[in-house]
Amino acid sequence: MRNDYQNPSQETLLAMYERMLVIRETEEYLGAQFRAGELPAGVHLYIGQEASGVGICAHLSDEDWITSTHRGHGHFLAKGGDPYAMIAEIHAKADGVCGGFGGTMHVADLSRGILGANGIVGGGLGIATGAAFAAKLDGKGKVAACFFGDGAANQGTLMEAMNVASLWKLPLLLVCEHNGWSEFTRSEVATSGNILDRAQPFGIPAQEVDGNDVGAVWRVAGEMIEAMRNDGGPGLLLTHTYRTRGHVEAEINFLSQSYRSEEEVASWEARDPLDRAVALLAETGMATEEILVVRERVKTLIDAAAARAQAAPDPDPALVKSMMFSEVDAW
């Protein structure tokens, strides 16, 4: 039976809003920690793009796979990753989800199907295609979603991935989160044509959506993923969104001039995905007080996770040498 993806239920909307809040609260905290000199490296914040990852991952289970980008905190949390384990990782602690070995650009949790954030732009394309092939071989209706940006859409491996995924009818959802910037280069300067059109020659269905509207993302992604689970082959989903923070929190320290106008940022802040989710919840009849309860709950959760992460022990340098191979002791 086909699900009705016309409108998410109030319960679904609220769950997605809560997940978006988890991302926002976590990243506001991480940004502040970086500016206070408390993190060893800069962080690439997903703030402003939360609806894209959350609306899509709402349709995925732990059995499905995702690959993510250098801006990967949001995808990690959207896919059900543990905020404490991620915050501890970014604080470079032993309790981190990768034991302090990966850090902000490599958060991964295989038990939740999160194959990792990736510091190589477009690095997830091959991995997700391989995971989609694995999903097809498994034959259990699993899918792989590959999150990448409009910058990565200019890597040749996107064409290669579309070619293989279409030929082999792989359950691969290519999610291009179009935030208008390839690091510090405007998309218009870097990208010819419309990224959506790139799927057409491969016979891959492609859709675009307002990536700041979690309800709209949820609807379109739901249809595409359901088709995929029924042996429908790959799809390309273009979510139009914007990072209202910098490429990396450290950028103010090294950029000699600004690369975008305050008006541009403000125009997107006016379309903030969390505010819009609140408006959607209000349309369903949810009272403001009920929404505030969720906000408080999330704030308490993240505050506690952050305090615990700060107090966690450092990783043991003696482990480094043993971490390159899983079977190093075998020879």
Binding site: G126, G130, A134, L137, T157, N163
Partner: peptide, 26 residues
Amino acid sequence: PDRVRDTPICEALLTGMAVGMAAAGW
């Protein structure tokens, strides 16, 4: 054909695919 498969000539993708397949249990 599921277990032995010719691919297109696209090495940059194939090495990444090997990673994804292995991570996903194959």
